[in-house]
């Protein structure tokens, strides 16, 4: 038993280090002076901190704009994907209708297409409709990319809420909408939070489509991809940190809804 626990703790530490060390190194490099990066051996402790790299990076053209665009796109995608995906997931979970299984398969099929294949015709359509080079265009693409998972995961979440709970709510006087809002939704919230995280991170990380669909209104990853390859090493670290941080903050905020919801740890 004790040995088992020790092994478990060891595994936890290893996994944490696996994800944590790169984060630390990137943060360290982003906050070091350019000279110290070239030093050998590389100092692994924050001995030579400097905000110079990061401020220069943030001050360079397009970075702040890209940041805001990315946030806009990410949050809009989450909202849009949930607004469309949650009712669809609910319908899949609760109602037997003709073509349900093919529909589920079809949803997954959209992910089988490479983003480039999707983006080029989309770019054409967006150019015609005047949506090209806007955050809306990227939001629409990301919503389309996120929806299959949003629908399928929320449907699994709703399947996990017993139908009898909903029936009980209705027997005791709740309308279907009220039963959903008062009884089903609160129980599905942890799962929906997880979907929101997943969607946000997906949108935040998506580069290819965002690059194709914009010129000036780049999201941060698209901007970083196109500009940083020509930049000095230090800026790449600064860009890396800038890309990682918001996703971590978002996950940290949503995590609250995942754990300890009703005085018990869930799932």
């Amino acid at each position: 038993m004790r040995r088992h626990r020790f092994g478990l703790q060891l595994a936890c530490v290893a996994i944490t280090l696996f994800f944590g060390v790169p984060l630390y190194l990137i943060a360290l490099a982003a906050f070091s002076s350019r000279e110290s990066l070239d030093r050998f051996p590389l100092p692994l402790l924050p001995t030579d901190l400097s905000a110079e790299t990061i401020t220069t990076f943030l001050g360079s053209t397009g970075v702040v704009g890209g940041y805001l665009n990315s946030l806009m796109v990410g949050l809009s995608t989450v909202v849009l994907a949930l607004v469309i995906g949650v009712p669809a997931g609910y319908a899949l979970a609760r109602h037997a209708f003709r073509g349900r299984d093919p529909y589920q398969l079809f949803l997954l099929l959209t992910r089988a297409l490479p983003i480039v294949v999707l983006s080029v015709p989309l770019a054409r359509i967006f150019l015609q409709t005047g949506l090209y080079d806007t955050t809306y265009a990227v939001t629409l693409l990301h919503t389309a990319l996120a929806l299959p998972t949003t629908v399928l995961i929320t449907s699994a979440v709703f399947v996990g809420v017993p139908r009898e709970h909903e029936e009980a709510a209705q027997v005791f006087g709740a309308s279907p909408a009220r039963a959903f809002a008062r009884v089903v939704l609160p129980q599905a919230l942890p799962g929906i939070a997880a979907v929101a995280m997943f969607t946000f991170v997906l949108s935040w990380n998506e580069v290819l489509g965002a690059t194709i669909l914009t010129l000036n209104q780049r999201t941060l990853p698209a901007h970083v991809l196109t500009t940083l390859s020509d930049s000095p090493l230090a800026y790449r670290f600064a860009g890396g940190l800038a890309l990682i941080l918001p996703a971590i903050v978002f996950v940290a905020v949503m995590r609250r809804y995942l754990l300890n919801m009703w005085g018990t740890t869930l799932r």
Binding site: P162, E164, A168, M261
Partner: peptide, 10 residues
């Protein structure tokens, strides 16, 4: 009264 009780956990 439901077989599974259908008590709302939240």
């Amino acid at each position: 009264v439901f077989q599974s009780y259908a008590i709302f956990p939240h």
